[in-house]
Amino acid sequence: MKIAVYGREFHPSVIPYVQHLFDSLAAKGAELWIYGGFRDFLNEQRVVYPPNLNTFVAKEGLPADVGFMLSLGGDGTMLAAVSIVADSGIPVAGINFGRLGFLADISKDDIEVSMEAIFRGDYDIQKRTLVSVESTQAELFDGNHFALNDVTLFKSDSSAMITINAHVNGELLNAYWADGIIVATPTGSTAYSLSCGGPILMPGSGNFVITPISPHNLNVRPMVISDEVELVLDIESRSGKFLLSCDSKTTAVSSDIRLTVRKAHYQANLIRLTNYSYFATLRNKLLWGLDARNY
């Protein structure tokens, strides 16, 4: 089986787990395709990987019959991996070497049993909606303008707020006076949007959430909208520009640009082992049901 591997630099303490993973893949005769920059890091750490190994830097460098991609790291690494496979349909499984692990849900202590299950085909594919941001006035993020978590607008190099005029299907929703706004998918509703007071959306619910960042008017609250609508954003800023992020990608954009935000034309395919439970993940990661008085 051909397997793609994506990762970024991480703490040396997890190197033994990475070595264990490659030893397991080698024993199964897997043909590996490793992200070029990550291979350089592995060489520096003297990780031994199978000899039948190739490198890639983009989805175009992967063979059409790749079975799946392994993301080695935290949720940020998982977002980058999903961005690389883009609309290729390649399923992605995340081994968590980070902290939270909402997306990268395979524990580093369960590598062996998890790889056995995946090679047996004992898993489900969970489809996750992505959000797209575009402008007819500029090319954004070199065409890679899709996000699994969220599209976010921030004020730039000024302490002054920005004004974001948001239209839903051509009708004015609100003029947000704020430090910015977040347009989050259900996947991203447990990320930055949640920390700014947004609600949690269940994957597959068919919604996005618009969450203002430090709004001037305290009665302006997060709003859930259908993911079938077209959201058009016009920005006013004293500095003449603002920051636009698309998951882990960020760029400075002129405030005379109009942005269109809508559901992406494809979905991400996430590998979930059969013992995976979304609600159990919420309970465990958010410490629901625990009495803080016991700590």
Rank of each mutant, 00 (worst) to 15 (best):
I125H: 07
Q126Y: 09
T129Y: 05
L130K: 04
V133Q: 02
E134G: 11
E134T: 14
S135F: 00
T136P: 04
Q137C: 10
A138V: 13
F141T: 08
F141E: 11
G143S: 14
N144R: 11
F146Y: 13
F146T: 09
A147M: 10
L148N: 09
N149R: 06
V151G: 03
L153T: 08
F154Y: 15
K155W: 03
S156K: 11
S158E: 07
M161F: 09
M161T: 09
M161K: 09
M161H: 03
I162V: 11
I164D: 10
I164M: 15
A166V: 15
L172I: 12
N174R: 08
A175R: 11
A178N: 10
A178V: 06
G180M: 01
G180W: 01
I182V: 15
I182E: 12
I182A: 11
V183R: 06
A184L: 10
A184K: 07
T185P: 14
P186K: 02
T187V: 14
G188Y: 01
S189T: 00
A191K: 08
Y192T: 02
S193D: 01
P199S: 15
I200D: 14
P203T: 01
G204P: 10
G204K: 05
G204L: 01
N207P: 00
F208P: 01
F208L: 11
V209I: 06
V209F: 03
I210W: 02
T211N: 06
P212H: 08
I213W: 01
S214G: 00
S214I: 00
S214H: 03
H216E: 14
L218H: 08
L218W: 05
R221D: 09
P222T: 10
P222S: 08
V224T: 14
I225R: 02
E228P: 02
V229I: 15
V229H: 11
E230S: 12
L233N: 04
D234G: 07
S237H: 05
R238V: 05
R238K: 08
S239K: 10
K241N: 15
L243W: 06
C246A: 12
C246G: 11
D247T: 01
K249A: 11
T250V: 15
T250H: 12
T250C: 10
V253E: 00
S254Y: 02
S255N: 14
